[in-house]
Amino acid sequence: MLAAALFGGLNFWTFAVYGYDKAQSRRGGGRVSERHLLTLAALGGSPGALLGRRLFRHKTRKQPFVNYLKAIVALQAIAMAGLIGWAASAP
């Protein structure tokens, strides 16, 4: 239960940071570093990052950012599949 709440909170925060960065981009204000955005995704906020990119149309063509985010998502999917397989095979 606590893990689900933390996961949801992290993804909400990640989504909000992507929205904030897009707003700052439009205003010409201080920006959030790409490293920070990718770190949030790598810590488990990749669903929020993907949703934020899509809804805010943010960082959609920025390379290599897009490839880094895709790699993070792929690694997390592989890790999750492995974890589910391991849990399913446990006695």
Score class of each variant (00 low, 15 high):
residue 4 A to F: 14
residue 5 A to V: 14
residue 5 A to N: 04
residue 5 A to Y: 09
residue 7 F to P: 09
residue 8 G to C: 07
residue 8 G to D: 10
residue 8 G to K: 11
residue 9 G to E: 01
residue 9 G to W: 00
residue 9 G to Q: 04
residue 10 L to S: 06
residue 10 L to D: 06
residue 11 N to L: 08
residue 11 N to Q: 12
residue 13 W to D: 07
residue 13 W to C: 14
residue 14 T to R: 01
residue 14 T to Y: 01
residue 14 T to I: 02
residue 14 T to A: 05
residue 15 F to K: 13
residue 16 A to M: 09
residue 16 A to L: 10
residue 16 A to P: 07
residue 16 A to F: 06
residue 16 A to I: 09
residue 17 V to Y: 04
residue 17 V to K: 02
residue 17 V to H: 03
residue 17 V to G: 02
residue 18 Y to T: 05
residue 18 Y to G: 03
residue 18 Y to L: 03
residue 19 G to N: 10
residue 19 G to H: 11
residue 20 Y to P: 05
residue 21 D to A: 05
residue 21 D to N: 10
residue 21 D to F: 06
residue 21 D to H: 07
residue 21 D to R: 09
residue 22 K to S: 14
residue 22 K to L: 13
residue 22 K to V: 13
residue 22 K to E: 15
residue 23 A to F: 04
residue 23 A to G: 12
residue 24 Q to R: 13
residue 24 Q to M: 13
residue 25 S to T: 10
residue 25 S to L: 06
residue 25 S to N: 10
residue 25 S to M: 03
residue 25 S to K: 11
residue 26 R to S: 13
residue 27 R to M: 13
residue 27 R to Q: 15
residue 28 G to R: 01
residue 28 G to V: 04
residue 28 G to L: 03
residue 28 G to A: 06
residue 29 G to N: 04
residue 29 G to P: 02
residue 30 G to V: 01
residue 30 G to F: 00
residue 30 G to D: 03
residue 31 R to N: 02
residue 31 R to T: 02
residue 32 V to F: 01
residue 32 V to W: 08
residue 32 V to N: 02
residue 32 V to L: 00
residue 32 V to E: 06
residue 33 S to P: 14
residue 37 L to K: 08
residue 38 L to A: 04
residue 38 L to N: 03
residue 38 L to H: 02
residue 39 T to N: 11
residue 40 L to D: 00
residue 41 A to Y: 00
residue 41 A to D: 01
residue 41 A to I: 03
residue 41 A to N: 05
residue 42 A to F: 12
residue 42 A to M: 14
residue 42 A to V: 09
residue 43 L to R: 05
residue 43 L to M: 12
residue 44 G to A: 12
residue 44 G to R: 03
residue 44 G to T: 05
residue 45 G to M: 04
residue 45 G to P: 08
residue 45 G to R: 03
residue 46 S to V: 02
residue 46 S to D: 04
residue 46 S to G: 05
residue 46 S to N: 00
residue 47 P to R: 02
residue 48 G to M: 08
residue 48 G to Y: 07
residue 48 G to K: 10
residue 48 G to F: 08
residue 49 A to V: 09
residue 49 A to I: 12
residue 49 A to L: 08
residue 50 L to N: 07
residue 51 L to N: 07
residue 51 L to G: 06
residue 51 L to H: 07
residue 52 G to P: 06
residue 52 G to T: 10
residue 52 G to C: 09
residue 53 R to H: 05
residue 53 R to S: 11
residue 54 R to A: 15
residue 54 R to I: 12
residue 55 L to E: 05
residue 55 L to Y: 02
residue 56 F to C: 09
residue 56 F to G: 06
